[in-house]
Simulated scan of single mutants.
Amino acid sequence: MSIERASALLASARSALFITGAGVSAASGIPTYRGIGGLYSDKATDEGLAIEEALSGEMFQRRPEVTWKYVHQIERACRGARLNAAHAAIARIERRLERCWVLTQNVDGFHRGAGSTNVIDIHGDLHRILCTRCPYEAHVDDYAELAPCPRCPACAAVLRPDVVLFGEMLPLEKVEILRRELARGFDVVVSIGTSSLFPYITRPVLEAAHSGVPTIEINPALTAISTAVSVRLPMRAVEALEGILSRIEPGG
């Protein structure tokens, strides 16, 4: 079985890179992007904009209240969600390895909450709030305490969530960490619950596969990397990762 092969690869590895997307947090009740709250599938916002326009860096510069309106909606739709067994399994597997990194597109902070220590949250963290002018920052568990378009208590400038909005560059320091770790190499690269649309998400898998490094994909749907990986598990994240963990840590 493929799950046996995946388990054997992770059991024998000393280092691993896990690349995660929305599918890892789906079991937490966090919907995939355009389905959030049932608001954005194939329809415009109240302002007649595509949601990508409303949540763009350009819109935030011009009309931050519009961007904040939909950031609040997204946070409200996800409020109360908790990390799940997939996050916990990745953290458990990490503790068996000499070196492990998690590259995630998710902004929910669940990997760190589960105990993963080396996390590259390439799109940011929805619960970290930054000032657009001064060094002020804060961790906010619940946006209910924020104003519709919040202002900095230190300098009165507009605050923003620490997330990459559409049209914005990825944070350079996180890109550099990823480059550094990829240059060191991994014994196995695992892609979980991501549609693999972005080059910085697909490239680590494809380059590993090209170099003969074992690669694993966990995803019910076919993606751009499905034909390139060593092992493909057409399963949901929780089911696959709990199955792998039970084989690596029988009775654990």
Rank of each mutant, 00 (worst) to 15 (best):
A138R: 06
Q61S: 09
A154T: 14
L103Y: 13
A54Y: 04
N106Q: 10
T45A: 11
G57T: 07
R99G: 05
P64V: 06
C131G: 08
D141T: 10
E65G: 03
C152F: 04
Y136W: 15
A88Y: 05
E65C: 04
P64G: 05
T132N: 03
D121K: 02
E145P: 02
W68E: 07
I90F: 00
H123L: 13
G80Q: 13
Q61L: 10
D108R: 09
A81G: 14
E65W: 09
C155W: 09
Y70F: 09
I129Y: 00
C152D: 02
E58N: 07
T45S: 11
R96W: 00
F60L: 00
R95W: 01
Q73K: 14
R79Q: 14
P153S: 09
D141W: 08
I93E: 00
A89V: 03
A91D: 03
A81D: 14
F60H: 01
A144Y: 04
H123E: 12
Q61C: 07
M59F: 03
R95H: 06
I129E: 00
Y136K: 05
I74E: 08
A154L: 12
D125A: 01
I129V: 15
Y143G: 03
A89T: 03
D125T: 01
A86I: 12
R112D: 08
A85C: 08
A54L: 05
R79I: 13
R99L: 08
R95K: 15
A156D: 15
I90R: 00
A89S: 15
E145M: 13
R79N: 13
I122M: 15
H111M: 10
A50K: 08
N106Y: 10
H127M: 03
H123D: 03
N106E: 10
C78I: 14
L49Y: 13
L55P: 01
A91Y: 02
I51L: 14
A144N: 14
H111A: 09
E94H: 00
G113F: 10
P135F: 14
D46V: 13
V71D: 03
G113N: 10
H127C: 02
P153N: 11
R96H: 03
E137S: 15
C155N: 04
I51R: 08
S56E: 06
A91T: 02
R63S: 08
L83N: 12
P135H: 15
G124E: 05
